[in-house]
């Protein structure tokens, strides 16, 4: 029984947590991919930037959270999301829009986003240093232990407050995004532009507004993803390329330009990672007791933790070989 609880704690919960983070990032990446048609390499550093803004706000107003009963950083998150959205629009105006108007090839846009990501990295590291920081400035992380009503279960299922907030936020974000894309004029215009940008222009759809909305959503979600990840672990300013790869993998697995696909892709990549580094020996140990001739090695993980980065890469390669359009058919290849 304890082995099973261990499995839930290590695989189910952790997988869902990291999957949710990837999903939040991948939704933004996939929207940008769909509307602006380039892989946005600056997304990971946009996440870090948003988180850094939360850190600053949290340090400025540390007493707000305890008054409401939530982590201060989570209370500050909406403000930082708005700020990140504004910054995202500003970055677009300054660096992407001029190139777009010159009708450059998509790959030049990719490089421009690399330029932006390096600038963001420089700024973040200059002001925040490279060490890890905690978003809990004046409060503590609440941890919930859920005991199972079984004789043999001496361990408890452990969930932290940030994890619950993450799941709730993801649910709210996905439902709102769904309603926005399917019910509102602007949301439908976004889908239209991602479907056929030339026809959107010919129809009189204001493409600048649509691009702006895309950056607002992507920027806000990136900030939320970074903050919720940092609340769960710590804020690492140099995450950048390490988290970019799984997010891209998630977006491509889900089918580029397909927000629900990105959601599914995020969980696929998240669970694949956790399952691959999970030490299966823990789960199989009861079997060893039952079958005395069985001799299990101590470590039965598929991939050592140091090589976790290979998992999203292999998922990416596999999907590019077998189904480049993604599991939900994306449109742009």
């Amino acid at each position: 029984m304890n082995e099973f609880i261990f499995f839930i704690n290590i695989v189910v919960i952790s997988g869902a947590v990291i999957g949710s983070i990837y999903a939040l990032g991948a939704i933004g990446v996939t929207l940008i991919f769909g509307i602006l048609r380039f892989a946005h390499f600056a997304h990971a550093d946009m996440m870090t930037l948003g988180t850094f803004l939360v850190l600053v706000l949290t340090a400025l107003f540390p007493a707000v959270g305890p008054a409401i009963g939530l982590p201060t950083a989570f209370v500050m998150m909406p403000l930082a999301m708005a700020a990140t959205a504004v910054i995202a629009i500003g970055i677009d105006k300054a660096f992407y829009k001029p190139l777009r108007e010159n009708n450059v090839k998509p790959v030049v846009m990719v490089m421009a986003s690399v330029g932006v990501t390096l600038m963001l990295q420089g700024l973040i590291r200059f002001f925040a240093g490279t060490g890890s920081q905690s978003l809990f400035v004046d409060d503590r992380k609440a941890i919930f232990r859920i005991d199972l009503p079984f004789e043999s279960a001496s361990r408890a299922i452990v969930v932290t407050e940030p994890q619950i907030l993450l799941f709730l936020f993801l649910a709210v974000a996905v439902v709102s995004l769904h309603l926005f894309l399917n019910k509102s004029r602007l949301g439908k215009a976004m889908r239209a532009m991602s479907d056929n940008p030339d026809l959107a222009r010919v129809s009189g759809i204001n493409t600048n507004t649509v691009v702006g909305v895309t950056w607002i959503i992507a920027g806000a979600l990136a900030c939320a993803a970074g903050t919720l990840l940092s609340l769960d672990v710590t804020l690492k300013p140099d995450l950048s390329f390490m988290i970019l790869l799984p997010i891209f993998a998630a977006a491509i697995v889900g089918g580029v330009g397909h927000p629900y696909g990105a959601l599914a892709g995020g969980f696929v990549v998240g669970f694949a990672e956790t399952l691959a580094v999970f030490n299966w020996a823990f789960l199989l140990r009861p079997l060893e007791q039952a079958l005395p001739w069985l001799d299990l090695p101590n470590n039965l993980a598929f991939v050592p933790t140091e090589y976790k980065i290979t998992i999203p890469f292999f998922i990416l390669v596999a999907i590019l070989i077998w189904r480049p359009t993604g599991i939900f058919k994306g449109k742009v290849i």
Partner: peptide, 13 residues
Amino acid sequence: LRSDYLAIATLGI
């Protein structure tokens, strides 16, 4: 495939 995918894959490798 799309030119972006090469960038992503090389970054990964």
